[in-house]
Design a protein around this nucleic acid. Structure first.
Lengths: 229, 229
DNA sequence: TGTGAAATTTGACATACATCAATGCGCGTC
DNA sequence: GACGCGCATTGATGTATGTCAAATTTCACA
């Protein structure tokens, strides 16, 4: 699949690559490839050796673990313009599975080549470490939520995350993935997800219409997310 | 507090510092300091600016979060010879609290100075990234356990972690921290911890004597940890 | 060695959430 | 436009774990 200029522009936007010269970036891109994915298609599997990291151009990617009995836990979702697996380059093997949940396009960067760039470009190392640091922070927050917050709180938090910056009173949002997937992401069952939504609805905090949700009272939702109960 | 040779030897053992010359290491150590801590004493608090990272020399350190109502969640425990907070240098602020749970000695490294070393020593950057990678892996496993494993499974896993390599059938271990703390570490209540232990005891898998625990059937415990139920 | 506070254990009870099951809805496909 | 298949919703029920409370043990410190 040929790389069009548009792709390169998008890649340039990543802060991880900010310190690369035009030439270095072109080199990096030349060692990578565009990958088209069908809905449900796997990108890599847990414990597989890690040869690539990825940038989402279009679609949605789920990063997940499987338990022995086949239960799936979605650890994170990667939307367009987001990198994933860039922080596991030094681990050798992927720590989880990645699959597209809808038709998607990703760009695959070559780990070996990127590592070579890292060797000569300390600023790039710093960028990657900053990226890893953010990743780590997110994980700690995740554990915090799972252990210190209830399902209702986590769902409220998730809804509020979808609200654009600066919106104060109410906001209309869309769920970009099936509720099934969000439930797994939040560590609850789909049935529980549905029931919590029903409660928020009957409490007058939200109105729902399929994947479109009107958050009628952001204040109340924020309170719900913050306070135990 | 003066640094004795013994301290420097211990610091040298850290793989993070493997690429440092004797001189660089001495420089690093000269910019740091030994800190003596009483039981319960705080080392740093969440959201505080990050100026140091640490190596435990003696004692035990808990890394934890607090919820709004004061509930404590122990995210990790650092034993002697373990580094902590080395992966948050690039974040700017500590993402959690750190405190000694018994009289402890830690060595505090200066982040600024270490960052300066990083600039000129790419191998050091690689070491740090490897360290961060391991940290990340641990976090993913942690989320996996919290969402996909039951309290009983997590406790069994914890007990098995205390068993030295190569032991096959049975093993005598010691809990190095109060059960209260382990319970928080595992994301369960102390009462639940106690009850699970009682069940393992009545199932003939373990015998207990305060903080000393005899794991009578490692196979059964491993099965319990792996299989749901 | 005694004393008090903290940790642990045990019991009774409450509850959030999971599970099982059935129905309904939406959506893509032919 | 009809069919079929996931996904979503709702109800009934089960259960692991939390909460509250009290008794008991452990341990640090005087």
């Amino acid at each position: 699949m040929p790389l069009i200029q548009q792709h390169i522009e998008q890649i340039r936007q990543c802060t991880l690559f900010a310190s690369l010269s035009d030439d270095e970036l072109k080199q990096l891109v030349n060692h990578g490839q565009v990958v088209e994915l069908n809905a449900g298609q796997t990108i890599f599997s847990q414990s597989e050796p890690c040869h690539h990291f990825y940038l989402v151009q279009r679609g949605m990617i789920k990063l997940y673990r499987l338990s022995v009995d086949g239960t799936e836990k979605v650890m994170d979702l990667a939307a367009p313009n987001q990198l994933f697996a860039e922080a596991v380059m030094f681990a050798g093997n992927y720590p989880l599975h990645a699959a597209a949940i809808e038709p998607s396009t990703v760009f695959a960067f070559d780990c070996k080549h990127f590592m070579a760039l890292l060797k000569d470009n300390n600023a790039l190392s710093f960028s990657l470490m900053t990226s890893m640091s953010h990743c780590l922070n997110g994980m700690i927050n995740e554990i915090d939520r799972l252990t210190l917050h209830s399902g209702t709180q986590r769902l409220a938090e998730y809804l509020l995350e979808q609200v654009p910056e600066g919106v104060m009173q109410s906001s209309r949002i869309r769920l970009l993935v099936p509720k099934l997937v969000i439930a797994s992401r939040l560590g609850i069952q789909p049935e529980t997800f549905s029931r919590i939504m029903a409660r928020l609805r009957s409490d007058g905090m939200i109105e729902t219409h399929n994947d479109t949700i009107l958050l009628k009272d952001l204040c109340a939702l924020r309170c719900l997310a913050a306070c135990p109960g």
